[in-house]
Amino acid sequence: MRQNLSFTLHVLTARLDRAADRLLRAEHNVSYRRFLALTLVKELGTPTQRALADTLGVTEPSVSRMTAVLAEDGLLDVQPDPAGGRRKLLSLTEEGDRLVTSVQRDFEKRFAKLVAHSGVPYGEYAEQTERLLATLDHLWTEKGTR
């Protein structure tokens, strides 16, 4: 077993992200970064561009450019906030929702196969990963470093 698990996790995540990006570009003509944005819009409900930028950890101008492209591609609806101001509310179009749902299902099947090939029990891996994530969230919230 490697002694540098944190580095190994970073390598695994980077390789999974690259594989996802190649697959999405080839099969759906969308980058993994844009797919993540669409996924987060679905998860957050009807977020503002600022909320999406905060969640993605990028600037608002970056999200503004990204959402414009996704709207142009028919995957995202961008509307002014009825409360006024310059805020924009984001929601998935039907096509965007179908894409997110379909790709999430496909990625889950592919990941389950990868985990099965590794010999690690899927349920155990999922439980431990969720436990680590919950602990990290708790510690970040507790220390206010989120």
Rank of each mutant, 00 (worst) to 15 (best):
Gln3Pro: 11
Gln3Ser: 14
Asn4Ala: 11
Leu5Glu: 13
Ser6Phe: 10
Phe7Ala: 15
Phe7Ile: 15
Thr8Val: 14
Leu9Ser: 14
His10Pro: 02
Val11Asn: 08
Leu12Gly: 13
Thr13Val: 05
Arg15Phe: 10
Arg15Pro: 02
Asp17His: 02
Arg18Leu: 11
Ala19Arg: 14
Ala20Cys: 13
Asp21Pro: 03
Leu24Lys: 00
Arg25His: 09
Arg25Ser: 05
Ala26Thr: 10
Ala26Phe: 02
Ala26Tyr: 11
His28Ile: 01
Val30Tyr: 04
Val30Ser: 01
Ser31Asn: 09
Ser31Pro: 11
Arg34Tyr: 00
Leu36His: 00
Leu40Lys: 08
Val41Arg: 00
Gly45Glu: 12
Gly45Pro: 10
Thr48Tyr: 06
Gln49Met: 06
Ala51Gly: 10
Leu52Pro: 08
Ala53Val: 02
Ala53Ser: 06
Asp54Pro: 03
Leu56Val: 02
Gly57Ala: 03
Val58Trp: 00
Val58Pro: 00
Val58Ala: 07
Thr59His: 04
Val63Thr: 08
Arg65Pro: 07
Arg65Cys: 02
Arg65Gly: 03
Met66Pro: 10
Thr67Cys: 15
Ala68Asp: 12
Ala68Arg: 07
Leu70Lys: 00
Glu72Ile: 03
Asp73Pro: 02
Asp73Ile: 01
Gly74Cys: 03
Leu75Arg: 14
Leu76Lys: 00
Leu76Ala: 05
Leu76His: 02
Pro82Ile: 08
Pro82Gly: 06
Arg86Lys: 08
Arg86Tyr: 05
Arg86Met: 07
Thr93Ser: 12
Glu94Trp: 08
Arg98Pro: 04
Leu99Lys: 05
Leu99Ala: 10
Leu99Val: 03
Val100His: 06
Ser102Gln: 11
Val103Pro: 03
Val103Cys: 01
Gln104Met: 09
Gln104Trp: 06
Arg105Tyr: 05
Arg105Phe: 07
Asp106Val: 02
Asp106Ile: 02
Phe107Val: 04
Lys109Ser: 08
Phe111His: 08
Ala112Tyr: 05
Ala112Asn: 14
Lys113Gly: 09
Leu114Trp: 13
Ala116Leu: 09
Ala116Met: 08
Ala116Thr: 15
Ser118Asn: 08
Gly119Ala: 11
Val120Trp: 11
Pro121His: 15
Pro121Trp: 04
Tyr122Trp: 06
Gly123Met: 14
Glu124Ala: 09
Ala126Gly: 09
Thr129Val: 10
Thr129Asp: 11
Glu130Ile: 05
Glu130Phe: 10
Arg131Trp: 12
Ala134Thr: 09
Ala134Met: 12
Thr135His: 15
Leu136Asn: 13
Leu139Gln: 15
Trp140Met: 14
Thr141Phe: 04
Glu142Cys: 09
Lys143Pro: 00
Gly144Tyr: 06
